[in-house]
Design a binder for these strands. Structure first.
Lengths: 258, 258
DNA sequence: ACCCGCAACTGGTCGGACCAGTGGCCTCAT
DNA sequence: ATGAGGCCACTGGTCCGACCAGTTGCGGGT
């Protein structure tokens, strides 16, 4: 082991800024569970004493922690900054940025959603509890009721359905990524759907697809549920994908399944 | 449209901090491409003038931007903070955190990798150019040469192979997510593999699997490539997944494909 | 022509100051 | 005794001015 190390060049020394050290210390305690959500950090002035640095330095550290979604600090709060429960906010921010700077188009996003939700359904068909199946049924019923109450209600119930499936997959990564990517996709095109003259028939078709998917999940037919879920997504969004890129998206449909 | 708005309650007013406004302005220019990677921001003192705020405020904004991986600032650099090219650093940080706070185990990570790389191979089999096929071949040859040069070299070549496949999928999301998740998985277990007494045979088996995958990709057989890629991952990592969770991971193997 | 040292910058940190809020405590009226 | 009200200590947000160590580029000396 020492041999392997001996060959490699030394690690470059990276200068450690004071505020970075603070960030790392707090981050570490939060990640190790020593600082639990809801608990409070000392006030800024108190921290200047504890860390032996100036308030500016403490504040720079707090800004970073806040931007990472680890804490929240409000002016006047006598209890000091609050440790937040984990939320995929930071992840959502990163992916949103990725989408914007790399000019990722709807095609890739939809493709990715098909990939995620396909597998989510595959797993859900295996693992969903009766409660979760019931929740999916409820969401579906809610979608049906929302047909006459406008697209916004419908979309909300639709999200609930997909969310339940993702939960049932028992994979937090699938869950969070689905949530994030779904949010980005919706932010890109929900307005277009809401304004579409034929949105009623779009919703009806989507409802039918969801019913088929749920049926497959109930029958524990994972591969079928996966295929139906992907087809449903393609069907719903393909119109908004530039025609040239549709074959790429279809690739996930045509090839993988018998 | 106005009707729909009228019903909803008003948006709560969120106080905008000065440094946030700076972050948003810079972020916006970077995302809109007005500030390109390599370009420089004004110096802190210059920005105090342009934004009409104090240096502390400017610095807090810069810390956030830096923590988001958008810029880098070095002391003494007369050109000012540098706009960085996009990198998945922030994404990696979020996912790493997600893994730690939610105590995501290797099972979920491997499952997610199987999902991503399966689809990556599926797409790559369709879309890979001759250059990319050649690059995969090169990486494979490099893996073979590295058999006698130790695990570290082998792992590097292995990463290059998977990276080429991900690139060939023509889906940046798959690419980045694969990269990130692969990194997290490796950080969790690469040491164990390096220390394993039978690592030589592990590497040989992995090499064989990779050759099969590449063969399938060359023959443009997407479904086969996908299945082989997943099996390869399962085979390589299953030993390190707690026995109780292995069936969950296998679920992605057994069910989806004929 | 080349090298070297100086000086004008940079960012990193500090300390102190002021402001507008918040929230708990204490007082006063009921 | 109890409830409502106001006061005040403290919070975070921002500003200012200062000093340090380091980098860079320029100009002068060789």
């Amino acid at each position: 082991m020492a041999d392997a190390e001996a060959g490699r060049p030394f690690e470059p020394v990276r200068p450690v800024r004071a505020y970075q050290s603070i960030v790392e210390q707090v981050e570490d305690r939060v990640l190790r569970g020593l600082l639990r959500p809801g608990q409070r950090l000392p006030s800024e002035r108190e921290m200047t004493a504890q860390f032996g640095v100036s308030r500016s330095t403490v504040r720079e550290a707090l800004r970073v922690l806040e931007s990472d979604g680890l804490i929240r600090s409000r002016p006047g709060d006598p209890n000091g900054p609050e440790v937040l429960p984990f939320s995929p906010t930071a992840l959502r921010k990163s992916i949103t940025r990725l989408v914007r700077v790399d000019e990722i188009g709807l095609a890739e996003l939809v493709q990715f959603r098909m990939l995620l939700e396909g597998s989510a359904n595959l797993l859900a068909a295996r693992l969903a509890t009766d409660d979760e199946l019931a929740a999916m049924g409820d969401a579906l019923a809610e979608m049906e009721r929302a047909l006459d109450r406008g697209y916004e209600e419908f979309s909300r119930a639709d999200v609930a359905f997909h969310d339940t499936v993702a939960t049932a997959s028992r994979n937090v990564l699938i869950q969070v990524c689905s949530d994030v990517v779904r949010g980005v996709v919706l932010s890109l095109i929900s307005q277009k759907i809401a304004d579409a003259p034929d949105r009623r028939s779009l919703m009806e078709r989507s409802l039918r697809h969801h019913a088929e998917v749920l049926d497959a999940v109930r029958r524990r037919d994972g591969p079928l549920a996966a295929r139906l879920a992907r087809e449903s997504l393609y069907d719903y969004y393909a119109d908004y994908v530039p025609e040239a890129e549709r074959p790429l998206v279809r690739a996930l449909l045509e090839t993988e399944l018998p």
